[in-house]
Computed example of a mutant assay.
Amino acid sequence: MPGMIRELYENKDELGFLSMESFFGLRTTVMISYWRSNEELLAYAKGQKHLTAWKNFNQKVTGTDAVGIYHETYYVPEGNYESIYGNMPLHGLGKAAKHLPITAETVSAKKRLTSSTTTK
């Protein structure tokens, strides 16, 4: 898996990869990735590093019910989301997309989500 993640970060622009977040808990590991487009995500999913990592994972967990997996994909059109950060580093969508400060023109959620200046 580390080789796949390294490849994503080293080739972000050509792959369409924007950012990733990972969370590790007692019984849960979550990886969230952000992509420029569905097409680029699907193209990477069929690429050699991803297929190799997926094959290795499946070989390790075959025959055991100790590991589960779920996969969700969401398409969010540009301008149809917001992430707000107060006194913390950029995270999630804030790392993956353009970060804009809140101004007098975008002080409320309604103003931010309907403003033509909130280009993500």
Results as ranks from 00 to 15, higher is better:
L8R: 02
Y9G: 09
Y9K: 09
Y9F: 15
Y9R: 09
N11H: 12
N11L: 02
K12P: 03
K12N: 07
D13K: 15
L15V: 03
L18P: 05
S19W: 13
M20G: 08
E21D: 15
S22K: 13
F24V: 15
G25K: 00
L26V: 02
L26G: 03
I32H: 08
S37T: 13
N38K: 09
E39L: 07
E39K: 14
A43L: 11
A43N: 10
A43Y: 04
K46R: 15
K49F: 08
L51G: 03
A53S: 13
A53N: 04
K55P: 00
N56R: 12
F57R: 04
V61K: 14
T62P: 01
G63T: 09
G63V: 07
G63I: 11
A66M: 06
A66Q: 14
G68F: 04
Y70N: 14
H71R: 15
E72G: 08
E72V: 15
Y75A: 00
P77I: 00
P77M: 00
E78H: 02
Y81M: 11
E82A: 09
S83D: 11
I84A: 10
G86I: 12
G86Q: 05
N87F: 05
P89S: 13
P89R: 12
G92C: 08
A96N: 07
A96W: 06
A96K: 06
K98L: 14
H99Q: 11
P101Y: 04
T106I: 09
S108L: 04
K110D: 10
K111D: 03
R112S: 00
T114Y: 05
S115D: 00
S116H: 12
T117S: 04
T118L: 00
T119L: 14
K120V: 08
K120L: 07
